[in-house]
């Protein structure tokens, strides 16, 4: 169903621009760095998942690839946040 729904990419476009803006605001104007970084990394991961699902139709990809790319997104975001935390501590 996802493949033939032309509204899916359109809605995703607005959503992506909106949350990109949020992450920009968090980076530039937030006073509390821990929250800002968590927001930046969390939003990046969310944007990637939206692109995977809405633009790339990852549901049509082989199951192994699907699990791998979700895992990759999670591991990258966790590593970025974890290593940022370690550097600030």
């Amino acid at each position: 169903m996802i493949g033939n729904d032309s509204a899916a990419p359109r809605n995703a476009w607005l959503l992506l621009l909106l949350i990109s803006g949020l992450s920009f605001v968090a980076a530039e104007f937030s006073a509390e760095r821990h929250i800002a970084i968590a927001a930046i990394v969390g939003i990046a991961a969310a944007k990637i998942v939206v692109i995977l699902v809405r633009f790339m139709d990852i549901d049509r990809a082989p199951a192994g690839i699907r699990r791998y790319l979700y895992g990759w997104t999670l591991v990258c975001s966790a590593a970025i946040f974890g290593l940022w935390w370690a550097a600030s501590a």
Partner: peptide, 17 residues
């Protein structure tokens, strides 16, 4: 597009301000 999201966050956002 997807890779730019992480690159942008890492290089431009994490260190901003």
């Amino acid at each position: 597009d997807l890779l730019w999201i992480f690159i942008f966050s890492l290089l431009y956002l994490v260190g901003a301000r």
